Amino acid sequence: MNKFSEKTIKRETIFEGKIIDLSVHDVELPNGEMSKREIVNHPGAVAVIAVTDKDEVILVEQFRKPLEKTIAEIPAGKLEKGENPLQCAKRELEEETGLVAGKWTKLTSFYTSPGFANEIIYIYLAEQLSDGQLNLDEDEFVECFKATLEEAEKLIEKEIIHDAKTIYAIQYLNLLKYRCKK
């Protein structure tokens, strides 16, 4: 056990849902004291920054109930049980945008909120786009549009793009493009 580890003594599942589960852990702290941790368990997700041959990013506009507003995001979705992140990325891109990609690159991954959730998001770059089959979930209502990186940055400033995964992916892509120019 490293010097910051917490040992789970007891775990109780409070809620099991379609997207998340919630559990409460009784933990022993590094100093020997006891505490409780409320943890959101999530199977993980993917996000796809799809770039056209004109250097435009494909964005999906949709209403987000927890926010009570519509925002623009890169295509994304939850991993199914046992699903490989790349396969999930390919599935989500086609389902949400009707596009398929000829070239895939894993860019990075990150934890969304490590203070209370174990969700990890894998970000993929999709290039060489062509038409596929749009196949939205029955409760999914989206509209796709394209934006240059400069336009996407303006959408971030206006809080139209207002989620961490999309902002992170756009900034990551900007960083890659900056490095390539050097």
Rank of each mutant, 00 (worst) to 15 (best):
E16M: 04
K78L: 08
L59E: 05
R91F: 01
K181N: 08
N41F: 10
L134N: 00
V48E: 12
E61V: 05
A101H: 04
S109R: 00
T166Y: 04
E138G: 02
D131L: 11
L173W: 11
S113G: 03
M34Y: 05
D163E: 06
T97Q: 09
K158A: 05
K69A: 00
K18Q: 08
E153W: 06
K81P: 07
I49K: 01
T105K: 10
E56F: 01
V51W: 03
E92H: 01
N31L: 10
Y122G: 02
E56A: 08
I156S: 02
Q171R: 13
K7R: 12
E95L: 12
E153I: 04
K54L: 12
C144S: 09
Y122Q: 04
K69C: 02
L86C: 07
D26R: 08
V27M: 11
S23H: 14
S113M: 07
E92S: 03
V46T: 11
V27E: 09
Q133N: 12
E12P: 09
I121A: 02
S35M: 03
E68W: 02
I170N: 09
E143R: 02
V48M: 07
K78I: 14
R37C: 08
H162S: 15
G115I: 01
A76F: 08
L59H: 08
T70R: 08
C88R: 03
I167S: 04
K10I: 03
E151M: 11
S23T: 15
S130D: 10
Y172I: 06
E119I: 01
N174A: 08
C144A: 05
S35K: 10
L86Y: 07
H42W: 07
I14G: 01
S5L: 14
L93Y: 06
F63L: 06
